[in-house]
Design a protein around this nucleic acid. Structure first.
Lengths: 356, 356
DNA sequence: ATGAAAGCGCTAACAT
DNA sequence: ATGTTAGCGCTTTCAT
């Protein structure tokens, strides 16, 4: 039995690792290609300073050995991680869309991203800690609910920008949609459709709710509808919306329109209302927030306030990168910038509109 | 103006970093505490070999300076990353539940996790590459759709286990639910409810569909329903289900029961069917797969085949860790293990059941 | 164009 | 119990 067979009859696929089982390093590649190790580094990161023929020999050796660069070592030596941490909520589909766009934008700015999920068993603080341990240079917090002074403290360590949360700190930036304008558009739209008995099913405590609620009441007042509108408890999930509308229709049986906290809640509202015999939009018009993928579902066709994930993402990345660069250069801290992106009402059938 | 003020009027919150703006290292802590740097290491990782009084002094210095251990450097030096990579699909809510449980299980086994999202702009191969660059010791692939030989190749580099995919390789492990048994339970349940004209709205190409479809046809045949059942195109999303049922009700208007590919599709089916005037469950019984959170929605009350995320996760972690340990010890490759977890029919109203 | 040497922040081995 | 030395895999700086 030869030495090569000693391993096992069962031969691993792909390029074999050196006999000892350790991973392939630049040294191994250098040895195989008959060059020095730093030269391999030059070739691998496509830096100038290597002859064409050598370059080819090195690349071939690397491929043969199945070499893969160790990012940790690279970051360590480089002094910079060029890494942006993203904290998202695993249960929020909209965060999935944001992650996609954030990754794209970050790559465009020369950064990589590292993800940390907030779940039932892991709070925001834990998720952030994990990313700080990886030495991310910036942090993008999606839908953060941490108290502002906690975020301030973190902003003392790395660049921070929050997305779709309500903060106004001098220590970090934020991007969110124009909740006030959106709410105003929703009320006007329903009013123009002839509705006066309008409900807002809010999500108390969730980011954005306070502004939407206040604006709702103000607009209703301006329209002279003080006595016909009401703010009732809804929530941010389908189940919350369903429960909310059921209670709402008992306390306000003659309501003809509802503004939901988000599209998920709106979905629950529509489904439950239909089950209770209400037709949507004929008996009950519904408007949501987010213009998420759900809004387009054939059986929903939900009128919703669009918040473009790509725009949110590119603004977030731009801001967090600017802060990170400033830190890397040792510039004095930047003042907090709080950007509010325009929103747009996308009219679909759920509010009585005629559009597809 | 004193030197301390030179920085800015605007004073950063939290512990200040050293003047030069670089991050705090163990050396800084060691200096501040008047001990050697390795001793700080001993204290920070709570290893034996430091006096109680020294330990306290070091910890205090670390806290004062805002020290945080650099995980990359730790992994690099340690030779092991003790890291498990998780590849998930950002658009799949069920993966969120799995991530939660996987993190829990991994922590229990002494590993950390690193996440990589598959999105519209980033394929599975890219996501896996990123994790390999971080030197993860194991990879948990959620709902992978890569061809098996591609996964085989990756399994040559690190420990791999797939969750909820259909593979049968000798090079990596897999865990999934018992699709055949689940489908059988669904058919029997509907049959017991008096249904004979049953449809299966599958998701061609998606993991699990082939088995479910084949089992559906076999069971129907055993029940003597060959001429009454049909397999029709559905899909894995709400929109797919809605479109699927609309077409299905046109081609098979007298169907009384539907088995959906998953709960998301079932949700679309129920909503669309109701919109078309069908009552659920009276006119159309619906059964889903996953028993996800949606299944419990008040307006859905969906009968579904449970696949416990906690069980899937702990099996996946157990298997990937076993493989990773074997590799770390240089043992010969383990044979592929393909575990199938039992499933259970959770009866709710959507199939005519009486249960909550 | 290439090589030699140093060092990122940490842990491990050995010395005291 | 504590300090010294070495080195993980890489990039950087300086020679040649």
């Amino acid at each position: 039995m030869s030495d090569a067979d000693a391993r096992d009859a069962h031969d691993a696929p792909g390029p074999a690792r050196p006999g000892n089982g350790k991973r392939v390093t630049m040294r191994d590649v250098a040895e195989a290609a008959g060059v020095s190790q730093p030269l391999v580094s030059i070739v691998m990161r496509e830096a100038p300073g290597a002859g064409a023929e050598t370059r080819a020999r090195v690349l071939q050796a690397a491929a043969r050995l199945g070499y893969r660069r160790d990012e940790r070592a690279r970051m360590l030596r480089q002094g910079r991680s060029l890494l942006i941490g993203i904290v998202f909520h695993a249960a929020q589909p909209f965060h999935g869309e944001l992650i996609d766009e954030l990754q794209l934008a970050a790559r465009g700015a020369g950064y990589n991203v590292s993800l940390a999920a907030v779940t039932r068993h892991r709070g925001e603080a834990d998720a952030i800690d994990a990313l700080l341990g990886e030495r991310v240079e910036g942090l993008v917090l999606l839908g953060a609910t941490l108290p502002q002074d906690a975020v301030d403290r973190i902003a003392g360590e790395v660049a921070v920008v929050t997305v779709a949360s309500q903060y106004g700190s001098t220590w970090f930036d934020s991007v969110s949609m124009d909740d006030a304008r959106g709410t105003e558009l929703a009320v006007r739209h329903l009013r123009a459709g002839g509705h006066t008995r309008i409900l807002y099913l809010g999500a108390p405590g969730v980011s954005g709710d306070a502004t939407r609620r206040a604006t709702f009441l103000r607009c209703a007042s301006e329209e002279g509808l003080d006595d016909e509108v009401a703010v009732l408890p809804g929530g941010a999930s389908e189940a919350d919306g369903a429960r909310g509308i059921e209670a709402a229709l008992r306390s306000h049986p003659d309501a003809t329109a509802v503004i939901a906290f988000n599209d998920r809640s709106a979905q629950g509202i529509v489904a439950q209302a239909r089950l209770l015999g209400k037709r949507v939009p004929e008996d009950l018009a519904v408007v949501g927030f987010d213009d998420s993928e759900q809004a387009e579902l054939p059986y929903l066709q939900l009128t919703s306030l669009a918040q473009d994930p790509a725009q949110l993402a590119s603004a977030a990345v731009e801001m967090v990168v600017r802060r990170a660069e400033a830190r890397a250069e040792g510039s004095p801290p930047l003042p907090g910038e709080h950007r509010i992106l325009p929103t747009e009402l996308v009219v679909r059938r759920s509010s009585g509109g005629r559009t597809a």
